[in-house]
């Protein structure tokens, strides 16, 4: 689990071009959107691509995305629950 969290941190920084951010700056339980990392709607779409590209998981209903991407922890939980 902690490995997955670290992997996700690196992937998010890379995929979302958060160049000024270090992995240790991201709190796994802090919200990714809004006051947390300040991500926007394009980042949300980019996270859907990230899940598919790096973890082979396709989000069937885009409406689920909000709950899945609430925090790094919720993303990790979703990946573990949906791994083939």
């Amino acid at each position: 689990m902690s490995n997955l969290i670290e992997t996700l941190k690196a992937q998010i920084i890379e995929q979302l071009n958060l160049a000024e951010l270090k992995p240790e700056d991201i709190d796994p339980n802090a919200p990714l959107f809004g006051d947390g990392l300040g991500l926007d709607s394009i980042d949300a779409l980019e996270l859907i691509v990230l899940l598919e590209k790096h973890h082979g998981i396709k989000i069937q209903d885009p409406k689920d995305a909000k709950a899945i991407f609430a925090s790094l922890q919720s993303m990790a939980d979703y990946i573990i629950a949906n791994k083939k």
């Binding site: 995929q15 779409l45 980019e46």
Partner: peptide
Amino acid sequence: YFPSPAVFV
């Protein structure tokens, strides 16, 4: 095949 919204925009 992974078109990226962050690139496309």
